[in-house]
Design a protein around this nucleic acid. Structure first.
Length: 306
DNA sequence: TAGGCCATCTGGTCCT
DNA sequence: AGGACCAGATGGCCTA
C-alpha cells in the first residue's frame, strides 16, 4: 500500500500514516505467523484482541487530548493565517490509528456479514456440501444460473427434464463445480456438459429461450472428484405454487420502492408476474449494494424453489 | 511451484 | 465528521 507513494509527494501526515501502515504490516506479519498455527480460530481471537486494543487506545487518547490542549494553551506565539498544515502530533497520530482500527473493524464486520449472506446463498443453491464448499464466485454463478432456470420455469409454466435443467445450471461454471453439481444430483457430467464458453443470454430479454435450445458438444476430461455433498433434488426445479403470492410480496414491494425502476402497469398475477418482478429487481438500481443483491438472490430462490 | 481462493488492510467516494 | 461501500493491494493457505 505505502509502496505506491513517492517520497516527494509525501506530506508530513502521509509520512506518519505510512509509518503507521508499516507498523500495521509488521504487526500483521506477527499475526500471520499466529494464523499459520491457529487458523480461523486465531483470526477471530485476533479480532477480539484488536478490539481490546482499540478500547485501550481510546482511553489513552483521552489523556493525550488533554495534554495537547494544555500545550496549545501554553503557546503564546501569534497564530498564522491561512490553511493550517496540521502537525502530526502524538495525539493526532493516536487519533489516526484509532480511526483506522475502527474502520478496519467495521470493514471486517461488513465482510463477515457479506460472507454470511453468501453462505446462506450457498445453502439454497442446488449443490450444498459442508465438506466441499463452493467458492464465492462459483456460488454466485450457480445462483445466477439457478435463478435463470427457475425464472424460465415460471415463465413457461412447464417443468423441464432433469438433464436440460442441469445443463442450464452448469453454464459457465468451472469443471470442478460442474462435477460437483453433477455429483450432487447423481449424474455423470459427461452426459450433459454444455459449451462452457457460451455466455448465457440476458434471460429476461429472451423470452424464447428454453432449456433444450442450446447446442451441447463439450466433452469433459474428468469425472467428479469426491467428496460430494448430497442434495435432495426434489425441490430444485419444482417451483412453489403461487410463489409470489404471499411470502415475497412485502419484500418485492419494498425492493421495488427502493429501486429506481420503472413502475408496473397492470395487475400482478402470482407466478408469471414473479418473473416480471424479478426483471425489475435485478435491474441495476442505484442503491443495490452487494449485500442487497445477495439477499435478493437468496429470497428469490427460497421463495421460488423451497 | 504456480494459480486459485480468501481475509484483511487501506484510501477513495458518497451519503447522512 | 463518521459510517457504508467499494476496489486494489498484499500475503497466507491449499492443491494440482
Amino acid at each position: 500500500m505505502t509502496k505506491s507513494y513517492t517520497e516527494e509527494s509525501m506530506t508530513l501526515e502521509t509520512q506518519a500514516n505510512s509509518k503507521w501502515t508499516d507498523e500495521c504490516h509488521s504487526s500483521q506479519d506477527e499475526r500471520d505467523v499466529e494464523k499459520k498455527s491457529g487458523g480461523r480460530e486465531a483470526m477471530r481471537k485476533e479480532t477480539e484482541n484488536d478490539e481490546e486494543a482499540l478500547h485501550r487506545l481510546e482511553d489513552e487518547e483521552e489523556d493525550e487530548e488533554e495534554e495537547e490542549e494544555e500545550e496549545e494553551g501554553d503557546d503564546a506565539k501569534p497564530k498564522r493565517r491561512g490553511p493550517k498544515k496540521k502537525k502530526m502530533t502524538k495525539a493526532r497520530l493516536q487519533r489516526f490509528k484509532m480511526r483506522r482500527m475502527k474502520a478496519n473493524a467495521r470493514e471486517r464486520n461488513r465482510m463477515h456479514g457479506l460472507n454470511d449472506a453468501l453462505e446462506s446463498l450457498r445453502k439454497v443453491v442446488p449443490c450444498y456440501s459442508k465438506t466441499q464448499k463452493l467458492s464465492k464466485i462459483e456460488t454466485l454463478r450457480l445462483a445466477k444460473n439457478y435463478i435463470w432456470a427457475l425464472s424460465e420455469i415460471l415463465r413457461s409454466g412447464k417443468s423441464p427434464d432433469l438433464m436440460s435443467f442441469v445443463q442450464a445450471l452448469c453454464k459457465g461454471l468451472s469443471q470442478p463445480t460442474t462435477n460437483l453439481v453433477a455429483g450432487c444430483l447423481q449424474l455423470n457430467p459427461r452426459t450433459f456438459l454444455p459449451e462452457q464458453s457460451q455466455e448465457m443470454p440476458p434471460h429476461m430479454q429472451t423470452a424464447s429461450a428454453s432449456f433444450s435450445a442450446h447446442p451441447y458438444s463439450y466433452q469433459t476430461p474428468g469425472l467428479p472428484s469426491p467428496p460430494y455433498g448430497t442434495m435432495d433434488s426434489s425441490h430444485i426445479f419444482h417451483v412453489k405454487p403461487h410463489a409470489y403470492g404471499s411470502a415475497l410480496e412485502p419484500f418485492f414491494e419494498t425492493a421495488l420502492t427502493d429501486c429506481t425502476s420503472p413502475s408496473f402497469d397492470g395487475p400482478l398475477s402470482p407466478l408469471f408476474d414473479l418473473v416480471r418482478v424479478m426483471v425489475f429487481c435485478f435491474r441495476p438500481c442505484e442503491k443495490a449494494t452487494t449485500h442487497y443483491m445477495l439477499n435478493l438472490m437468496y429470497v428469490f430462490i427460497v421463495g421460488t424453489a423451497f
